[in-house]
Amino acid sequence: MKIVEKHALWLRLVHWFNVPLTLLMIWSGVLIYWANGVYPGFFPKAFYRTLDLQQKLAEGMAMHSLIAWLLIVNGIIYLCLLAASGHWREIFPNRKTPAQVVPTLLADLGLIEMPNTGDKFNAMQRLAYTGAIGLGVVAVLSGFAIYKPVQLEWLTDCFAGYEGARLTHFICMLGLSGFIAVHLVQVVRAGWNNFRAMVAGFEVEDER
């Protein structure tokens, strides 16, 4: 048995700050969306009723505009340390990624053995983590485009206008929700050793 360091302390701190902040951001965003639910299928009345999400536009806006700053600060710290530490090399797609996408996906679905590339994160993880960072950045930008469409009109125009920015922001939320759901399933599947690494920083390897 051998202790192997896996996740740096800064990464764990940023990750665990991100968890409640992101959940509160999505929650307060739904409170706001309720006031003008224009996208068909989102969300059923029972969903709002059960979770007590109705008639809370003002509360949602107050929450959203507080949590947003905390998330932005956390996000900037993450991006700076991601660049400075070189951790980006472990999670951004690299030259090997395209060829590995299909085998990794098939392995994730349990159809074949996971190909061993010797990398800390496989092709699907790289795509998912990089995609989540991208969604976060776009969510912030489209959020500002909705928040100040007159003062930041140039930004709103980048999203083809106010309605485009709202749709983009909503899609980012769905994308991040999807990421979180898949992430949780994968964490459960990967087991205790992997989860402990996100808390304590190390994994235990069997020595052969």
Partner: peptide, 24 residues
Amino acid sequence: MNAELKRRSTKSFAVLLLFIIIFI
């Protein structure tokens, strides 16, 4: 080895628990 594993694990999860309590 086992002692160190246990010590680091316990410490980290205690910190996580504290973090959850402080946040809530």
